[in-house]
Simulated scan of single mutants.
Amino acid sequence: MIEPTIANRDVTLHILKTFGIHMSKKLGQNFLIDEQVVQAIVQAANIQTGDAVLEIGPGIGTLTQGLVRSGAQVTAVEIDRQLVTVLAKTLEGYENVRVVHGDILRVNISQEMGTDSYKVVANLPYYITTPIIMGLLEQRLPVELLVTMVQKEVARRMVALPGTKDYGALSVAVQYYTEPEIMFIVPPRSFVPAPAVESAVIRCTVRTQPPVTVQSEKLFFQIVKAAFSQRRKTLFNALKTTGRPPEEIKEALLAAGIDGARRGETLSLEEFAAITNYWSK
Rank of each mutant, 00 (worst) to 15 (best):
V192T: 14
Y176R: 02
L137S: 08
R106E: 15
K152W: 14
Y126D: 12
T178Q: 11
T115C: 00
D103K: 06
I128P: 06
V107S: 10
L235C: 02
E198W: 14
T12R: 02
A255T: 09
T129I: 10
S216G: 01
P187R: 10
L91M: 15
L146K: 00
E217Q: 13
G102R: 13
V97D: 13
V192H: 12
V42F: 01
S171D: 02
M134R: 10
L146W: 00
Y94V: 06
D116Y: 09
K26F: 02
L269A: 08
K218V: 13
Q82G: 07
M1P: 09
T75K: 14
R157I: 00
T148W: 12
P210E: 00
L27K: 10
L63A: 00
V74W: 02
E153C: 04
T164D: 04
R140Y: 02
M1W: 09
F220I: 06
A44I: 00
Y278G: 11
H14G: 12
T90I: 09
I2A: 13
L267Q: 10
A40L: 11
R263F: 12
I202N: 11
N123I: 11
G71R: 03
A88V: 10
Y118C: 09
V174T: 15
G243F: 12
N123A: 08
T129H: 15
R106P: 06
D10R: 03
C204N: 01
V99H: 11
P188E: 06
V224H: 05
T62S: 10
L239P: 08
V121L: 11
E3D: 15
T205H: 01
A227I: 14
T75N: 08
T213F: 13
G102F: 09
T5I: 14
V201N: 14
A255H: 08
V37M: 05
L32V: 09
L136F: 05
F31I: 03
T266R: 13
T49P: 10
M158F: 12
T129V: 08
P58W: 04
E251M: 11
A200Q: 07
G66Y: 08
R262N: 06
I33N: 08
E138I: 00
V74L: 03
K233A: 00
A227L: 07
R157F: 00
T5Q: 05
P193K: 12
I79G: 07
L145I: 00
G66M: 09
L235S: 01
H14I: 08
N30W: 07
I47D: 08
T12L: 01
T18P: 04
S190N: 01
Q151R: 12
S24M: 04
P58A: 11
A255Q: 13
A122D: 06
L235G: 04
R69W: 00
N108Y: 02
A226P: 12
V77C: 14
G163I: 01
L83H: 11
P245R: 11
V197R: 04
Q209D: 07
E92Q: 14
L124S: 11
K165Y: 11
V68K: 15
H101P: 15
L67Y: 06
L105N: 11
L87C: 13
L170A: 04
G264W: 05
L254N: 15
Q209E: 04
